[in-house]
Amino acid sequence: MAERYSSFQQGGTMWFLQRVTAVFLLVVLAFHFFLLHFVNHADEVSFLASSARMETLSYYSLMVLFLFTATFHGVNGVYNALVNQGLSGTKRTVIKWTLIAASALLIVQGVRTANAWAGGFPLF
């Protein structure tokens, strides 16, 4: 039988965080789907209504936490998939720092967008 290989150390912090973020993302996606497809139908969703939802601190906080969680989960998954494919040495270091920089830019722009949509929360 083939040997199982993973760059995650089973039981390690990154392994654990990948699983926790996956569960969180599933719950938030279910909430999103329920809210925007059952409570409000797609043709009823407007920029004004979305902005009004973002003005509530609980919804705003959930969306910003979703941004951080989805970014971490996605980037960590891509990085570990590349490591599993044999990425090593200098290329591994360059890819790691490129993904970290891209994540930082994504998070900064995402929070700026959320702030604008929410009417200017004072974060960034």
Rank of each mutant, 00 (worst) to 15 (best):
A2C: 04
Y5C: 04
Y5T: 12
S6W: 00
S6L: 04
S6T: 15
S7N: 09
Q9L: 09
G11E: 13
G12V: 02
G12S: 15
M14G: 00
M14L: 14
M14S: 11
W15V: 10
W15K: 07
L17H: 04
T21A: 06
T21C: 08
T21Q: 04
A22F: 12
L25V: 07
L25N: 05
V28W: 09
L29N: 15
A30N: 02
F33C: 11
L35R: 15
L35H: 09
L35V: 13
H37Y: 13
E44L: 08
V45E: 02
V45I: 15
S46Q: 05
S46C: 06
F47C: 02
L48A: 13
L48W: 04
A49L: 13
S50V: 09
S50Y: 10
S51F: 04
E55N: 10
E55G: 10
T56P: 00
T56A: 03
Y59R: 02
V64H: 03
L65N: 04
F66H: 10
L67S: 05
F72E: 00
F72H: 01
F72Y: 15
G74P: 07
G74I: 06
V75R: 06
N76I: 04
N76H: 03
G77S: 15
V78W: 12
Y79Q: 14
Y79F: 15
A81L: 14
A81S: 12
L82E: 04
V83E: 05
N84I: 09
N84E: 08
G86F: 04
G86T: 09
S88W: 03
S88Q: 14
S88V: 11
R92Y: 01
R92W: 02
V94S: 02
K96Y: 07
W97H: 15
A102W: 05
S103Q: 08
L105T: 12
V108K: 00
V108S: 03
Q109I: 14
V111A: 00
R112L: 15
A116N: 14
W117N: 14
A118N: 01
A118R: 00
A118H: 01
G119C: 03
G119R: 02
G120W: 04
F121M: 14
F121A: 12
P122S: 11
L123H: 12
L123M: 13
L123A: 11
F124C: 07
